[in-house]
């Protein structure tokens, strides 16, 4: 890391995260778009098994670009992205800002998609599909069409699809940003429950300080122009986390620290437009 990770608070529950095995390494990643926009400059990130990492920063700081690089949708200008043990199928699940469901397919068929593209029949995957749907509380909606569901429910289907293959990393790009506050809070709670149950590895993009502290165990604070990592902040609170977590002093302290770091990146010259 450019900036050493540091525990945010003395005496917090000790979890030895360094013992986790690394899944993916980003080394000195640069991405420069045509026209000279430096979307990312020298980004380093280790994603370890079971991490819940938030990429936090103002818009335009390269958060989506980082996700697209990890997803293999674009290649870095310089630097290396290495999957531990090489890449393969079932590496990734993705949740976008919109639910991104196929409107012509039922919920069950939508969740089936990653398996279907591997050539597996619906029947052979049904058990896994309904397991994933049960995790997001939609096991009774398998035969529904997306248009019959509310915005929050569609998002849950999208999450079920992302985790149905039990991928090595789940990428989420501001997944709840388009939802109303109440639904969003509910989904955040549910995401934490999911995390506690499945121990999935998640990279979560957000521009909400509170969301990042509430959800993640590592916050990667980023700044724009050029897009870069300014600090990594550890959140040493174990999962499962509940309502008490959001009102605890530790939460408040870390939120404060994160907020200050974020504000520090917004020097007058580099203000978001």
């Amino acid at each position: 890391m450019n900036v050493a990770s540091q525990p945010a608070l003395e005496g917090a529950a000790p979890i030895d995260r360094s013992a986790r095995e690394t899944v993916l390494r980003m080394r000195q990643i640069d991405k420069t778009f045509r026209g000279g926009v430096v979307a990312l400059h020298e980004m380093n990130l280790d994603i370890r098994k079971g991490d819940f990492i938030s990429l936090l920063g103002p818009s335009g700081c390269g958060k989506s670009t980082a996700l697209r690089l990890i997803a293999g949708l674009m290649r870095p200008t310089a630097g290396r992205i290495e999957w531990e043990g090489g890449g393969g199928k079932d590496d990734l699940g993705v949740v976008f800002q919109e639910p991104t469901l196929m409107p012509w397919a039922t919920v069950e068929q939508n969740v089936w998609l990653p398996f279907r593209l591997q050539g597996k029949s619906l029947g052979s995957c049904r058990e896994k599909i309904y397991e994933a749907l049960a995790l997001v509380g939609l096991e009774n909606f398998g035969k529904s069409y997306p248009r019959e569901l509310s915005g929050g429910m569609k998002m849950r289907v999208s999450i079920a699809r992302a985790l149905v293959t039990d991928p090595r990393i789940i990428l989420m790009d501001e997944p709840f940003a388009a939802l109303d506050e109440i639904t969003r809070q509910k989904l955040n709670d549910d995401l934490l429950n999911l995390k506690a149950k499945t121990d999935a590895t998640v990279v979560f993009v957000t521009h909400s300080v509170f969301e990042s502290v509430f959800l993640s165990d590592r916050i990667v604070v980023m700044a724009a122009r050029p897009g870069r990592v300014v600090k990594e902040i550890e959140v040493p609170e174990p999962y499962p986390r509940g309502i008490e977590w959001r009102t605890s002093p530790t939460y408040a302290t870390i939120a404060r620290e994160t907020s200050d770091t974020l504000l520090g990146t917004l020097s007058p010259g580099a203000e978001v437009h």
């Binding site: 949708l73 199928k89 993705v94 976008f96 998609l113 593209l117």
Partner: peptide, 10 residues
């Protein structure tokens, strides 16, 4: 986004 998803799933 669905196109991207299809690419990610190879």
């Amino acid at each position: 986004n669905l196109r991207d998803l299809f690419r990610i799933y190879r």
